[in-house]
Structure formats: C-alpha cells, structure tokens
Amino acid sequence: MRWYWIDRFIEFESGKRAKSVKNVSLAEEHLHDHFPGFPVMPGSLMIEGMAQTGGILLGEHYKFEYNVILAKVPKVTFHSWACPGDQLIYAAELQDAREEGGSVTVTATVGERLVAEAEIVFVHLNSDDPQLSRIDQKNFVFRTNLLDILTVGQAGVGG
C-alpha cells in the first residue's frame, strides 16, 4: 500500500490555505475489515489525510527546506463518517509557521456535511538532526514521493 491519503489538491494558496480531495473507494483493502459489512474510512487515516494536506501547506511555505513531522494532534472531533463513494474535502488553514514548526486547523467535509475537524502541530527537523534517525518514517508528512500529489491533475482534463 502506498502512503497517500489525499488524491490531489484542488486549491493551494501559499502560506495560507489548501484544499485537497480524498475519494473513498471500496477498492481500499482495509475498508473490508473496517468494518465487515459496514465499510467506513478509519478516523486515524482521515487524520493522516488532514496532516498530509496541512503538512504540505506548511512545507511549501518554507520551500520544503525542512522535514515536516506530524508531532501532535491537540484536538480532533469526528462528527460523522465517510463511506466508499464519498468525496472528502480536507480544508487546511495555516495558523502558525516558524523556524521550529507550525500548526494548522483542518476540516473534513463530504458535500455540506462536516465529517471531522482537527488542530495539528508539526515540528521541523533538519536532515542532519540526530533526532531524525529515531523517528518512525511514517511520521513524516512528506518525503520524496508524497510531493507527487502536488503534480496530480497537471496532465489536464483529458478532453
């Protein structure tokens, strides 16, 4: 499985806000276990999608100079759920951005329906920071391939 929990960006205002799309599909293996007969997008993966949206927003603000690491989710509320066929829109707003890290608020909606909202804090680590080796790679909001998401859709609409 590839660790992409957003499909593409639909809006990107550097240093301010970004909106991404996640199309929930029954082709996703885990939905058959979560739960059998009642497939819903796991909340933890929604947080990951929100963090990928907000983390790329923060990373881009500093031209990807830092490794942006998901450090803390001070607050998250799930109001509803998302099922196969739903299109989640993650709307992130950059609240703080400084040398040490940053924070975002993000909402997840399907149509008009609010599914989840969260505050997320990230820290910056330089590539030569000794702490870097102690960190699980999955904590990285972006490394190499994840930035491919920024180019999704650039092939045009195929028409």
Partner: peptide, 20 residues
Amino acid sequence: IDFLDIVFRLEKNFDIKIPR
C-alpha cells in the same frame, strides 16, 4: 513537543511574540 504548542497558544491568547 508540547512546548511548541504552548508557545503557539500563548502568542495567540496574549497577542505577544515569543522568539525561539
């Protein structure tokens, strides 16, 4: 990691700047 979060919140709640 909480210290950075606390700094962000203090800056907002008191409208002050707290350099690193």
